[in-house]
Design a protein around this nucleic acid. Structure first.
Length: 492
RNA sequence: AGGGAAGUAGCGCAGUCCGGUAGCGCACCUGGUUUGGGACCAGGGGGUCGCAGGUUCGAAUCCUGUCUUCCCUACCA
């Protein structure tokens, strides 16, 4: 069989790739560093998008769409941001191709069609958006301006990995403008909280909320808030960020408003985003050696019904009972697939749906129907039980909620078992190498020490957790005094 | 970006050293028997060997260039 997966322990990276490719989430493409998101993977993204979109709307945001291209002069307006992205920008320099006069049938870039001003393919949209907001904001009555866009962005990465880092990816980016600093900070924190709730309640993936250190901060931001999740190899993955941008973009793009006293003030800004990287996070957070394990709330298919045909006469009876069950489940709001493909055998289907992470499988044969039962199997625990067909939809609903909770608990228990308080440099290094995970340790707060630790250990400060209690201590590297522990890990 | 490996049918691979007109398993198609954990029998279709040059009577095989992917390390918001 070509469907056999590499195991996690054998090679974690290959296991991950196998899940993505064999689970039908994505494919490589003819374009370097770019992937094709297949229907099953895109279904996951749609689930994420719909849930997040509702959360954004519920917090007062509206969607809009801004151009893919950013004139270079706009892009460079906010210096730090431009510098941060400069080395990974795709740039459009020409607007026309023509037939190669030397080599007929081939196309060349028409040298006559050079753009006066190059266009940067957006790696993020702050520049074009703030240039636009300038025209939209005149008065305090225009604020707050709360806008989100669902879009693709391009960052020319040298080394790519499916979903985790690709040259082009899908994301959402929220960009808001506020009259006061407090309001903008509150917005930044609110959206971080939205992300954290989404990760925990929908993806069943526990996250640490925190603030980035200066070194790890978004270019152009005053503060970057993050949610950090732990993958099954103990490495950290930044799952979402929310930035307090201060007045940096307002000043760069001259975005001012008249306050109630008619004095002109610069607006205060935020931006926040999550991307298709979340799909990579989802895969690595829960899956096992048999395949994907998807949380019911995001699984494109929550329940699959597999008929067990026996003899030519059984098909009709089973199909009609299975169809009735499917309709009953659908009526309960469950996403269900009746896999009545007669050319594949049950065993094959069982393995296939396990690989794809379908949370619940119902097997239905003549024997079951005679006894008024069905065999129900959970993907997360692999438990199988015979359950009465009568009232099954209600039980399945409950089971889906339990599965959602169970995989969250499992991920949380894993994270807790791999989170260590460490007070010496020796233990710090030993933990990273021998029992990878999150390390809570003291740091003197200086960028130099942070850099030194990174050089020596390849671990970075993932965040200063928001709930970190005050605690006197000594920096793990420099020995200088520290007031709280910060979160270290090797990261994706 | 450094090191390593690999591109031959949809997938996994053999063939490459030693040049002679492409093969195996799975998948696919047809017919039949089957169906409670990746079925079986019979028949069949599909590949300008990643791409571009070169050497040669002749290239999957030798030479040069190039593209893509993976792994390890490094880098990255």
């Amino acid at each position: 069989m070509s469907r056999v997966l590499t195991s996690r322990s054998e090679n974690y990276s290959e296991w991950y790739n196998d899940l993505i490719l064999k689970g039908g989430l994505a494919d490589y493409s003819a374009v370097r560093g770019c992937m094709v998101i297949k229907p099953y993977g895109y279904g996951l993204w749609e689930g994420m998008r719909d849930a997040l979109d509702k959360m954004f709307k519920d917090t007062g945001h509206q969607n809009a769409y801004f151009p893919l291209f950013v004139p270079k002069s706009l892009f460079e307006a906010e210096e730090k941001n431009a510098e941060g992205f400069a080395k990974e920008c795709a740039v459009v320099t020409h607007y026309r191709l023509k037939t190669d006069p030397v080599n007929k049938g081939k196309l060349i870039v028409d040298p006559e069609a050079k753009l006066e001003e190059e266009l940067v393919v957006r790696p993020t949209s702050e520049a074009i958006i703030w240039n636009t907001y300038k025209n939209w904001i005149q008065s305090y009555r225009d604020l707050p301006l709360l806008i989100n866009q669902w879009a693709n962005v391009v960052r020319w990465e040298m080394r790519t990995r499916l979903f985790l880092r690709t040259a082009e990816f899908l994301w959402q980016e929220g960009h808001t403008a506020h009259a006061t600093k407090d309001e903008a900070v509150a917005e930044t924190k609110q959206m971080l909280d939205v992300y954290a709730r989404f990760a925990e309640e929908w993806m069943a993936m526990p996250v640490i909320r925190g603030v980035k250190s200066a070194n790890e901060r978004f270019a152009g931001a005053e503060d970057t808030y993050t949610i950090e999740a732990m993958m099954q190899d103990g490495k950290a993955l930044q799952a979402g960020t929310s930035h307090f941008l201060g007045q940096n973009f307002a000043k760069a793009f001259e975005v001012t408003f008249a306050d109630k006293n008619n004095t002109l003030e610069y607006v205060w800004a935020t931006s926040w985003g999550v991307s298709t990287r979340l799909i990579g996070a989802l895969v690595m957070a829960h899956s096992d050696d048999e395949g994907l394990v998807l949380p019911p709330r995001l699984a494109p298919v929550q329940v699959v019904i597999v008929p067990i045909y026996k003899g030519p006469d059984s098909k009709e009876a089973i199909d009609s009972r299975a169809t009735a069950l499917m309709l009953e489940l659908q009526a309960s709001g469950i996403r269900v697939k009746f896999d009545n493909d007669d050319t594949a055998r049950p065993g094959w289907k069982f393995a296939e749906h396990e690989l794809k992470g379908v949370p619940v499988r119902i097997a239905l044969g003549l024997r079951d129907i005679e006894n008024g039962v069905a065999e129900v199997a959970r993907r997360d625990t692999k438990e199988k039980a015979s359950m009465p067909l009568e009232g099954l939809a209600g039980k399945i609903q409950t089971m889906l909620v339990e599965i959602q909770q169970n995989i969250y608990n499992k991920a949380l228990a894993f994270r807790e078992a791999h989170t260590y308080k460490v007070d010496t440099w020796e233990e710090f290094m030993r933990r990273l190498d021998e029992t990878p995970g999150f390390i809570l340790a003291h740091w003197d707060g200086s960028p130099e020490t942070e850099e030194e630790i990174k050089e020596l250990s390849k671990a970075t400060i993932r965040c200063i957790p928001l709930d970190a209690p005050e605690e006197e201590g000594a920096c793990i590297r420099s020995g200088k005094p520290s007031k709280r522990r910060v979160l270290f890990a090797r990261a994706y």
